[in-house]
């Protein structure tokens, strides 16, 4: 294994302490026979106001990573979370369920994938949004909480919020419902929003509106956004930095401009090659094979080697470390040899 040259250990520029820093996160899910490692060795940090993308194919562990941040896996018999999640100088993995409840919605909010089903059909939407400030005691009375809900509905662009707050979810279109879900996420005034594919269920035009909205709200409130997506177009246009995930591991991490200009991991390169570019007629290159199912992830070596054109002997044996400069890191033997 080639050692990293010392100049790659440039000390990071002195920054304010990270809002969130995840170190060596592992999430295992219990199957009938053994614990399956679904997320392995995930480490990253986020600053206030940063939009970080978590990119990867379906089933590669993106949502599970996010659920682990919220403490929604691992507290039951189905899974196990190891590693460290530091958020605003607190170690989230040490907190009790009760303490985590105080954080969910208030400090870390979740905007879910499917706005069509994540609102309870039997309550008016205003009451559901008001639940967040009420639950976290940001308001003294239910009426105040309703006022807060209406203000947030207004801020996410729902016309006539005072009237619409009394409507039930079915009375809203998909885009409007996603705005509602976002306003629900924001009404606790969180420092971090985890948006799990917030636009997957929406039309492309609505998609742009919703992402613009998230972008504006980030500017207004200074919250950080962890955007989970499989859409590289979304990453290119709206995110500051991106992490590419494959089979539960982060294989490449870089600022978005750098990642798109200079993709280094073969998986990232393949991903970019399989996205059509309007105006350019070039053959798309699908990635051969498919991402391994949870139970088929090889226990050693690089999980991408089976689909990788550059696979070599070393890939069979060891998983390469995530190495590189302070800003651009990649986990690939090919890259390490070149360096």
């Amino acid at each position: 294994m080639t050692r990293r040259s010392p100049r790659e250990f440039e000390p990071e520029k002195s920054r304010p302490p990270a809002l969130l820093s995840v170190d060596g996160l592992r999430v295992s899910l219990r199957s009938r026979t053994r614990m399956l490692p679904a997320v392995q060795e995930v480490s990253f940090s986020m600053q206030r106001g940063e939009i970080l993308a978590l990119v990867g194919e379906s089933g590669c562990g993106k949502s599970l990573t996010a659920q682990a941040l919220l403490g929604l896996v691992g507290k039951n018999s189905l899974g196990q979370v190891e590693g460290s999640i530091r958020f605003k100088d607190r170690e989230l993995t040490d907190l009790s369920e009760r303490e985590m409840r105080a954080i969910r919605g208030r400090e870390i909010a979740w905007v879910s994938q499917d706005p069509m089903t994540s609102l309870n059909p039997v309550y008016p939407v205003g009451a559901q949004i008001a639940e967040v400030p009420w639950l976290h005691q940001l308001c003294r009375t239910r009426n105040q909480a309703r006022g807060v809900a209406e203000r947030w509905m207004d801020r996410v662009g729902i016309p006539d919020p005072a009237l619409r707050a009394r409507d039930y979810p079915f009375a809203f279109s998909g885009g409007m419902r996603q705005r509602l879900v976002i306003s629900m996420g924001l009404s606790g005034e969180p420092d971090l929003i985890i948006a799990d594919e917030p636009t997957t269920a929406l039309d492309v035009t609505i998609q742009a509106q919703i992402l613009d909205l998230l972008h504006d709200l980030r500017a207004q409130t200074g919250c950080a956004i962890l955007l989970i997506t499989h859409d590289l177009g979304v990453v290119a246009q709206w995110c500051d930095a991106a992490m590419v995930m494959y089979a539960g591991r982060i294989v490449e991490k870089a600022p978005v401009g750098e990642l798109l200009a200079n993709p280094t991991h073969p998986y990232t390169q393949n991903l970019l090659a399989s996205v059509p570019t309007p105006g350019h007629r070039r053959p798309l290159q699908p990635i051969p094979g498919q991402a391994p199912a949870l139970e088929d992830i090889p226990s050693r070596g690089c999980p991408f080697r089976e689909r990788c054109a550059l696979a070599r002997a070393a890939c069979e044996v060891h998983m390469p470390d995530l190495v590189g400069s302070a800003v651009h890191r990649v986990a690939c033997w090919d890259r390490e040899v070149k360096a």
């Binding site: 909010a109 979740w110 499917d114 039997v122 639940e131």
Partner: peptide
């Protein structure tokens, strides 16, 4: 999903049973 959403805003299990499951 809305039960999951309720968990993600910090609702307690009792609150979820009362506010979401019972109705």
């Amino acid at each position: 999903d809305y039960i999951e959403a309720a968990r993600s805003i910090g609702s307690s299990p009792a609150a979820i049973l009362y506010r979401h499951v019972l109705p």
